[in-house]
């Protein structure tokens, strides 16, 4: 069938380019963390170097995430849809935690603005893309049941209450952790 899409994915080559960019930038980030910022281009400030590396890492993850598989069949498309849902959810969790009322001080200033944009970049860009990669690769290679599960929250609760309880506890802990970290900052 000949589908038209407004947002076509890159070809399979994008996987290799994205993976290469991700690995190189991740290695540079590790070196940056261990050896300090001065080893890189000294014309940039340490903060700018770190943001540049994170930006590069995000670009790599983005290319890796939005490229076609070698055999991009309907199962891959379903797994991709599940992973995209996970990514969007993580993105909103990041946004909700970054712009929560707890993030505004008594003077009406955003605590995020006082600090750096790094936390925001990590929560809204890197974490969702990493979530996508984790879900997509688990679904693609391990072929787990839950990747194909398209039931609503209520139906899942009826079908498997124990797992749903575990899931709710995990999400609650994750959100609480993010909020506590934000408040401590």
């Amino acid at each position: 069938m000949n589908y038209f899409t407004l947002f076509p994915l890159q070809g399979y080559w994008g996987k290799f380019v994205g993976l290469a960019i991700s690995i190189v930038s991740l290695l540079l980030l590790l070196i940056y963390t261990l050896a300090g910022p001065t080893f890189l281009l000294k014309v940039f400030s340490p903060e700018k170097q770190l943001v540049s590396l994170l930006w590069l890492f995000s670009i790599g993850l983005f290319m890796l995430s939005f490229s076609k598989e070698k055999i991009d069949d309907e199962r891959v498309q379903l797994v991709r849809y599940t992973a995209l849902r996970g990514m969007v959810l993580m993105c909103f969790i990041g946004l909700f935690s970054s712009f929560s009322p707890l993030m505004i001080d008594d003077l009406g200033m955003s605590l995020m603005a006082k600090g750096s944009t790094l936390a925001l970049v990590l929560m809204v860009i890197v974490a969702p893309l990493l979530t996508y990669q984790v879900i997509f690769n688990i679904g693609l290679h391990l072929n787990t049941d839950w990747v194909y599960n398209d039931l609503s929250a209520e139906d899942n609760l009826k079908k498997n209450p124990k797992f749903f309880l575990f899931y709710i506890i995990f999400i609650t802990l994750l959100l609480t952790g993010i909020l506590i970290l934000n408040v401590l900052k």
Partner: peptide, 25 residues
């Protein structure tokens, strides 16, 4: 899988009942 133009994992997923194929497949 080769005859159908899908991956081997897709055939495995169909056989185990995890994945329900489209009408076309």
């Amino acid at each position: 899988a080769e005859k159908l133009g899908v991956s081997r994992q897709t055939i495995h997923a169909i056989e185990t009942g995890k994945f329900v194929p489209s009408t076309l497949l």
